[in-house]
């Protein structure tokens, strides 16, 4: 069957891209039929998706336990807030600035601790996140506004007449950034860097002996993850128009950790599903009022019981050894 590929057409719902087209269709139609409240719910879904993707690089791709990711998020948000309120620099110009600030912070903080393993790295990142939060509360150099935070952040703009100031525009801003990140991350997953990361996750010692610079690639993961979290912080700050330390607690880091694990480590669609679960669940279960967090905890346990690998686990790519063996056997026979 020489032409089997072209002849084998299963209709629209069987084709490879149909799911993607349906998802994109819903994405574009949704903001025009939903109320402002539900567009905002979708906006925060987007923020959590971006945060999940950023932690996914560190936790999912390289397997480093990072429970202080809210620290990077906070650095991004406060960089935007301070530079915007003190110097009036437009928010959209500050997106790369926030990303660089968070990345630089990650580089400086993580360089001395990158050799730590497993849970020791985990507690150091927790400590890092807490130090950032407490420092913000204590208002160093009168910059961060203490427990009240920074107020009066502008709507996102480039300084010109184009200003993002409605829920629908925010929705497209965040999901546009998420979309771009997804494209970039898929490219990264299939690159030399992505393969090096996965190799380190599977076996650090073996990766080192195969010539992978383990230290460099681990740091790179932290830096890229922090940069993405910084971007999320930027958009979050401009949406809320104020930032305060209580948005960046240990709890927030735990939520990001759960997003990655509930979705599936290293799986990009999984992380989006995880973010959806974390951000939409409390909305859907609003009628339960004070019992909804009870339900939330129970569902988290049940999900790990029935789908321990996550909702959409990552498929192992590359050449599988068994298939290679069978092919060789076929050749011999």
């Amino acid at each position: 069957m020489k032409y089997s590929k072209t002849l084998n057409y299963n209709g629209f719902f069987g084709s490879r891209h149909s799911a993607l087209i349906i998802v994109l269709g819903i994405f574009f139609i949704y903001p025009f039929i939903a109320s402002n409240y539900y567009i905002d719910v979708a906006f925060f879904f987007g923020i959590y998706a971006l945060l999940g993707l950023s932690l996914n690089i560190v936790l999912g791709e390289v397997g480093l336990f990072d429970l202080g990711h809210a620290g990077f998020y906070a650095i991004g948000a406060y960089t935007t807030a301070i530079l915007n309120t003190k110097f009036g620099i437009p928010i959209l110009i500050l997106i790369p600035v926030s990303a660089v600030a968070a990345a630089l912070f990650a580089y400086i903080v993580c360089s001395p601790i990158i050799h730590l393993r497993g849970d020791y790295l985990c507690i150091v990142t927790i400590g890092m996140g807490e130090i950032v939060r407490i420092a913000l509360i204590n208002n160093p150099f009168d910059l961060t506004g203490g427990p009240n935070g920074v107020f009066g952040i502008d709507f996102p703009s480039l300084g010109g007449p184009f200003v993002i100031d409605s829920s629908i525009e925010y929705y497209f801003l965040i999901w546009g950034v998420v979309g771009l990140s997804i494209v970039g991350l898929i490219r990264l997953q299939n690159s030399r860097i992505g393969r090096a990361w996965n190799c380190i996750r599977e076996d650090e010692v073996a990766a080192g002996t195969s010539g992978i610079n383990v230290r460099f690639y681990k740091l790179l993961a932290f830096v890229i993850g922090a940069a993405l979290a910084g971007v999320a912080g930027n958009i979050y700050a401009s949406k809320l128009m104020c930032v305060s330390p209580e948005s960046f607690t240990f709890w927030e880091s735990c939520l990001m950790f759960c997003i990655v694990l509930i979705g599936g480590m290293g799986s990009i669609p999984g992380v989006i599903i995880g973010a959806g679960f974390i951000s939409l669940f409390p909305e859907i279960f609003r009628p339960f009022a004070m019992y909804r967090m009870l339900v939330f905890g129970t569902v988290m346990i049940l999900m790990m019981m029935f789908r321990p690998g996550g909702a959409w686990p990552r498929k192992r790519g590359g050449v599988e050894f068994t298939s290679l063996l069978t092919r060789m056997r076929e050749k011999d026979a």
Binding site: C254, F257, C258, L261, I262, M265, M290, Y291, M293, L294, F296, G297, T298, V299, M300, I301, M303, M304, M305, P308, G309
Partner: peptide, 26 residues
């Protein structure tokens, strides 16, 4: 969840933590 490995157990522990905390609140 033990057989599934360490990381799912961490999420489960967080779930248990949320559950107990909110039971106290209720």
């Amino acid at each position: 969840i033990y057989p599934a490995g360490r990381l799912p157990a961490v999420v489960s522990a967080l779930g248990a933590s949320i559950f107990i905390q909110n039971t106290i609140m209720v």
